[in-house]
Nucleic acid binder design. Sequence first.
RNA 1: GGUCCCAUAGCUCAGCUGGAUAGAGCAACAGAUUUCUAAUCUGUCGGUCUCAGGUUCGAAUCCUGAUGGGAUCACCA
Length: 587
Amino acid sequence: MNFITEAVVKAAKSLYQADLTPAEVNLQETRKEFEGQVTLVTFSLTKFSRKSPEQTGNDIGEFLKKEMKDIAGFNVIKGFLNISLSDSYWLDVFYSQVLADDFGAFKPNGKKVMVEYSSPNTNKPLHLGHVRNNLLGYSVATILQAAGYEVIKANLVNDRGIHICKSMLAWQKFGDGETPESSGIKGDHLVGKYYVLFDKEYKKQIDELKVLGQSEEEAKKNAPLIKEAQEMLLKWEAGDKEVIGLWKTMNSWVYAGFSETYKRLGVDFDQFYYESNTYLLGKDIIDEGLEKGVFFKKPDGSVWIDLTADGLDEKLVLRADGTSVYITQDLGTAQLKYDDFHMDESIYVVGNEQDYHFKVLFLILEKLGKSWAKGLYHLSYGMVDLPSGKMKSREGTVVDADDLIDEMEQTAKKRTEELGKVEGFSETEKLQLYHIIGMGALKYFLLKVDPKKRLLFDPNESVDFQGHTGPFIQYTHARIRSVLTKMSLSPLTGGPARLFPEERDLILLLSQFPETIDIAAKEHNPAAVANYVYEIAKAFNKFYHEHSILQAEDEATKQFRLLLSAASGKVIKKGMGLLGIEVPERM
RNA sequence: GGUCCCAUAGCUCAGCUGGAUAGAGCAACAGAUUUCUAAUCUGUCGGUCUCAGGUUCGAAUCCUGAUGGGAUCACCA
C-alpha cells in the first residue's frame, strides 16, 4: 500500500502545498460495510487543506483517481475516503506476489537468536502448564526462523536439587526396586509417583511432630525425611558414588519419558543445558561485579546489589557461605550461553510468576556492562488455570500432558468416526489422522490466545472442533487438497475478466502473510499467526461456498480459482506450520 | 503494605502506531446439501468495552485514580 501513501503525499503537495511525512498519512483497511479496500482518514489532514473532512476526502479522491490507474473509484463518508482498487491491481498482486515461489519466505537477516523453553524439572511428568510453554517456545522459534533469524532452541533442564532428592529418597525407602520396566509405568510418571509419595510421608511426619508439641515451622524443619533429603543433596554435591548412581538412573527414566512426550508434542531442541553442570557457574561474575563496584559485600560476607534506584529492592546474589542462589547460576548460565553462541538475542520462555526475577537478572547484566544484555527478552506467559483455580501437583489437580494428549486423540477419533470420514484410510493412516487433528485442536486452542494472558482450561468441556479451532482450519486445508487432486493446473493464463468480492478478499488476506510473520516475530506472538490463518480459512470457505471452482464460468476463471485455492492451501499449511500444527491431506 | 500483570457479549477470545454503527467462535434459535468434503455456509439473538476523571476534532486503545482478580516482594528454584 506504499504507493497509495506516496500518492497521498503527492496529492497534499499539489492540492494544498503541504509537505506530509508518510507517517501522517493514516491508511487502514476499509470496513466490510463500505465499498472499497483501503481507507484514508482525513480528519488529521484538514489542518493542511483548511477544508471540511468530506471536502478534503473528495479533493484527494479526485486527484488519486485522475493520477493513478489502479484506483478504480472512491467514496467519502465523513472523514473517511474509501478507495477501491481495480481488479487488475488485485490480480497483479496475486500473480506477481502471492504466487511467487518465495512468497512468505524471508531472506536470512544475519541475526542469531536463542529461544530457551520447556526447561522442566526432572522429578515429575509434564503437565498442561508445561504444554503451553513448549508450544509457545517451539512456535516462537519457528516464527523467528521464518522471519530470517538463525535460531537455536535450547532446553535448560533442572536436573538437580532438593526436589529430585525427594523422589530419589522415597524410591529408595519405599520403591522396592520398582523400575519402568518392572511396573510398566512411563519413567517420568514413575519418578513423579515417588515425589508425591515423599510429600505424603513427609506430611505424616509433620503431623506426628505437631502432636508432640512442635510448631508447624519446627515440624517442617525437623521431620526426619526432609533431613534425609537434605543429607542426600549434600552427598550428591560431594559426588557420593551411590547417590550419583541412583540420580543418574532415575534421571534416565525421566528423560526417556520426556522424550516420548516431546515427540508427541512435536517439539525439539538443538542444545541442552543441565543445571547439574551450570549450578556452580556465576561465581566469577560475582567477582567481576564486586570489582566493578556493581555489587557490594555485607559484613557477614554475603554479596548484594542495590537496585532501589531502579525501583526494585536490594537483591542477594551470593550467600554468606559463598554458595549460589538461583540468580547466581542464571547469571553464569547467561554468560555461558553467550560464550557458546554469540547470539544477538536470547529469549526466555518462562511463566509470568518469574517476571521480577528476569527484570532483576537483565538489569544486573546490563549494569555489569554486558554488551549482549540488551538482546535478552523474557517471553512471559500467563498461567493455565482450571475452573477450580490454579493447578497444584500436590493436590492432584494437574492436567497431565500425556493424559491430555491421549484424550485429544480419543476425541478426534470419536468425532471423525461419527462423521464417517475415514473411508479408505488404513489403520496407521487413521492413527496418524487422529493425532494430527487432536493435537491440532489442542495446540490451536493454546496458541490462539495472547501469550501474556492467563488461560482458562476446563477439562470437563472438551476442546472444540468447530468454529474458531484448529480442526476447522485443518478441514479447510483438506477441502482444498481434495479439489486440487481432482484437477491439474495448466500453465498460467491471464486470469478472469473480473473478480468477485470473495476472491478479492482472499487475495487481500493472502497478501498480508509476510507482514503477519513479521509482526508475530517482532511481538513474539504466535497468536497473531493463529488468528490470521483463521481469517484465511474463513474467507476461503466463504469463497468455496459461493463459487464453483471446477464448474467455473470459463477456463481462465477456473484456472485462476484453482491457483487461488492452491495459494490459500499453501498459506494455511505454512501458517499452521509456524504454530507447530500439521494439516492433513484428507479428513 | 510495595511493585508488576490482567479486566471487551452468558462462555472463550480478536480489536495493528487513538478513527466510522466495538468484531469472531461457542451456546440458543431459524435456514442452506440433485452441485468441488455440512468438522462448512447464511441469518437472528446477544455490549454502560469494570468504574470515575483527564488529554483529543475523535478513546476499548493514551494518562491519573478507584474497584475486582492474579503474580511477586526467600540466604527456594
